[in-house]
Design a protein around this nucleic acid. Structure first.
Lengths: 144, 144
DNA sequence: ATAGTTATGATACCTGGTATCAGTGAGACG
DNA sequence: CGTCTCACTGATACCAGGTATCATAACTAT
């Protein structure tokens, strides 16, 4: 989990100004556990203007400090990120997110490019399921 | 491309009422080429209430008459659908969509389930790239 | 200290989507 | 053909995510 300090140093290194608003938003983001919506950040950084929160979220996304998590219904959430390109496995019951380190479709992308004459630049891939603990509590509930 | 008539028969068969509003929305949807936003449908079916348009879009999605297309920025569009489960390859330049018939991650899903103890229920997969014709016009523009 | 640029935040707006709820009309049944 | 009922409608208000505008504030290099 990155520290506030290290994120700030990263911004400085890229010639972004360190302002109280930005620090507040970053602190709010780092305080989240799991994935969260912009609304969560807005609530936790009430003093900061709406537009600034969105601007900072975009900045953090561009710097790969957070990544976007696509939920099953198409809504976007965010998540503090530790890696470069990766995918997610989201538990639809408890919301827990498992990071999948390797990009599983790199080979596929090459095949597709050859088959379609597209130059493939990116992709979205997210998996949804039910984690082991949610499955067992479901089984218990069914028995009762 | 399904015809208005056949969509209506499909609704009837599933005990949904055929109303002028629904017919108007379905006609507007079938008139779209490529992928489109709900806004496009709202514009083309102005007489129909906003809520009804959304309700009908959900109905059509549930019946797999349209499918959702996830754009690179996370926004959802719709597209008249001819198949069951499939994925898309979207040209980021002209917006053209190529349907990918086979689900490329079915094998992956099995591997993942074994590795993570999740019961995997679904996934999102979309590819983005540049189609052959957009690539060649880009090359021409660069030369000029 | 100050200049120059970047960031802010209030506000208004856009898009997608849902909740509510009184009113209407499709279509089944007689 | 009438009528009953339930599914459907649409106005409205709301929520969430996100952008545009623009006058004002403030960071930081000099």
């Amino acid at each position: 989990m990155p520290e506030l300090e290290s994120v700030i140093r990263k911004l400085e290194a890229l010639d972004h100004r360190i302002t109280p608003s930005r620090v507040a938003v970053i602190a709010a983001v780092l305080a989240q556990s799991g994935h969260f919506s912009v609304e969560d950040v807005l609530r936790q950084a009430r003093a900061v203007g709406r537009a600034t929160v969105f601007r900072t979220m975009r900045l953090l996304t561009d710097l790969e400090i957070v990544c976007r998590v696509l939920l099953e219904d198409g809504s976007l959430h965010y998540r503090v990120s530790r890696r470069g390109h990766h995918h997610h496995l989201v538990c639809v019951s408890c919301g827990n997110v498992q990071d999948l380190d390797e990009c599983a479709v790199a080979g596929l992308v090459r095949e597709l490019a050859a088959a379609t004459e597209y130059e493939i630049e990116g992709h979205w891939l997210e998996f949804y399921g039910r984690c082991a603990s949610c499955r067992s509590s479901l089984a218990l509930a069914a028995k009762a």
